[in-house]
Design a protein around this nucleic acid. Structure first.
Length: 492
RNA sequence: GGCGCUAUGGUCAAGAGGCUAAGACGUCGCCCUCUCAAGGCGAAAUCAUGGGUUCGAUUCCCAUUAGCGCUACCA
């Protein structure tokens, strides 16, 4: 029987959930689903200083929002619980003791100052700063002496000399390291908590992880982990180190590149399907030319051997394009739900509208659906329906209203408008036809003044769409006000 | 500094010894159109450099360069 594929996503809850983390989670998710395996969510919270429950909640909320659910782990439980590293300390201690007993690890009593001094002197000699093994062969008497000074030891792993360490990597092939470049590293901190490199091995083994798919920044740490697998006689999983996501300036994505956390994109009104689609295409290429993928299509098409080795720059333009695509697929109601928080923030709505009012709001927002890339752009796209007071955009706009034909256009337009009270685009067009006939003017000479008078701007959505939504009354008021602003006198 | 990873248009990228070097985003142009978008059509734009290997290299090897990562009692 084929061994079940078991992958994990193991974030540290130390801040906002980064878009890069989301991609790691996504690739793990896709691999799990593709191979009908399991995805485990484990929380690596051994850094007490930086970890927080709030951040853990953030991660879970973001994963759920993206639709990346997990089979075992935090919240959902499973046969290998608990899934939070700070709740598994006994396990790490046992294995640390085992290594200690076997002489594969030892207590180190060096202080920060001593280590720093060693580092500096090595640096001065032009050598690589690494732990030189000062406490490697301490006698029991020496240990006792340090203990009586009140020093709290760490436990270091005894790195074997002259050993070649080969990491089997699904995306990079086999990468070889030399153990001589690795100093004896800490596996248990003086506060009794394990370090990342230690805990990750213990847990991945305990949880029967078969594939470790994670960001490339961990590749250089992997030989350390391999050493621990070997020392403990654990079989090694297959690794897959996916490249980093870079900002526009080709450095690692950070705050100054704009939004970097999943939550920021959620708040900006991006759709989770779009983020997933975009992230999948960042560092993975489908065999064909398809760009838009539903989650099921991604699962069907995904494979690790089409994961790119090179880092990818986060392209906001493309995300916007993809998001726009998904936005267009929304129903009127769904799109209105997306718009709601943004409209409320602008003070355009209370969010509690019902009946006719709600219907009108839905029609208004629907006009923006083809034109926005994400939710936060909606208010600007519909502001003209909410703001009756507006300035004339510029001198050019004003000039449009000062054309000698304008009074006649407006008189005719308002008369026909009152007569027809158009409810839809065709009837508005009929109104314009009549006005054109009556004034003997071409389309543009009629449309432009009306547009400027109605919105203050020379650009905007189709007038045939705007006018029925504004209604005859508001149209009249706006036209009168705009003409006054331009200093044009008309007697209606 | 050491070790490691990476290198095709502005960006995501296909390619896996011989191709007019796909496709997408973006950009530009044209069409549509009251305008702006959207949409349709089209265009410009790429194999980092230097050595090998080979009849032939974007593709394989080696150097250089550049970017990134690791080198923590962070993950």
């Amino acid at each position: 029987m084929e061994k079940e594929v078991r992958v994990r996503f193991a974030p540290s809850p130390t801040g906002p959930f980064h878009i890069g983390g989301a991609r790691s989670a996504l690739f793990n998710y896709l691999l799990a689903k593709k191979s009908k395996g399991k995805l485990i969510l484990r929380i690596e919270d051994t850094d007490l200083e930086r970890s927080s429950r709030e951040s853990e909640e953030n991660i879970k909320a973001a994963l759920r929002w993206l639709g990346l659910d997990w089979d075992e782990g935090i919240d959902v439980g499973g046969p290998h619980a608990p899934y939070r590293q700070t709740e598994r300390l006994e396990l790490y201690r046992q294995y640390a003791q085992q290594l200690l007993a076997a002489g594969q690890a030892y207590y180190c009593y060096c202080t920060d100052e001593e280590l720093e001094a060693e580092r500096q002197s090595l640096l001065k000699e032009g050598k690589m700063p690494r732990y030189m093994g000062r406490c490697r062969d301490l006698s029991p008497e020496q240990q006792a002496a340090f203990e009586s000074e009140g020093r709290k030891p760490t436990i270091r792993f005894r790195v074997p000399e002259h050993q070649e360490i080969a990491v089997r990597d699904l995306v990079r092939g086999t990468v070889v390291f030399d153990s001589d470049n690795i100093g004896d590293f800490v596996i248990m901190k003086s506060d009794g908590l394990p370090t990342y490199n230690f805990a990750v091995v213990i847990d991945d083994h305990a949880m029967n992880i078969t594939h470790v798919i994670r960001a490339e920044e961990h590749l250089s740490n992997t030989p350390r982990q391999c050493l621990i697998y070997d020392a403990l006689n654990f079989p090694q999983p297959v690794f897959g180190h996916i490249s980093l996501i870079l900002g526009k300036d080709h450095t690692k994505m950070s705050k100054r590149h704009g939004a970097t956390s999943v939550d920021q994109y959620r708040r900006l009104g991006y759709l989770p399907e779009a983020i997933v689609n975009f992230l999948a295409l960042l560092g993975w290429a489908p065999p064909g030319e398809q760009e838009i993928f539903s989650k099921d299509e991604l699962i069907a098409a995904f494979s690790m051997d089409r994961v790119a080795k090179n880092p990818a720059v986060f392209d906001l333009d493309k995300l916007n394009w993809i998001d726009q695509h998904y936005i267009r697929r929304l129903s009127v109601e769904e799109f209105y739900e997306l718009a709601k928080p943004h409209l409320r923030e602008k003070g355009y709505i209370t969010g509690r509208e019902t009946g006719k009012e709600l219907e009108w709001l839905q029609r208004v927002t629907a006009t923006a659906q083809e034109h926005v890339a994400y939710g936060a752009q909606i208010p600007a796209a519909v502001s003209l329906y909410f703001e009756d007071e507006f300035p004339l955009e510029d001198e050019e706009a004003k000039a449009v209203l000062c054309d000698p034909a304008v009074p006649a256009v407006m008189e005719n337009f308002l008369r026909e408008l009152a007569k027809a009270e158009p409810e839809d685009a065709p009837s508005v067009k009929a109104v314009f036809k009549t006005v054109q006939k009556a004034t003997g003017l071409k389309g543009k000479a009629v449309f432009m003044p009306v547009r400027v008078a109605l919105t203050g701007k020379q650009h905007g959505p189709e007038l045939a769409a705007i006018i029925p939504l504004l209604g005859e009354k508001r149209c009249r008021k706006r036209i009168e006000a705009s003409l006054a602003k331009a200093g044009v006198k008309v007697n209606f």
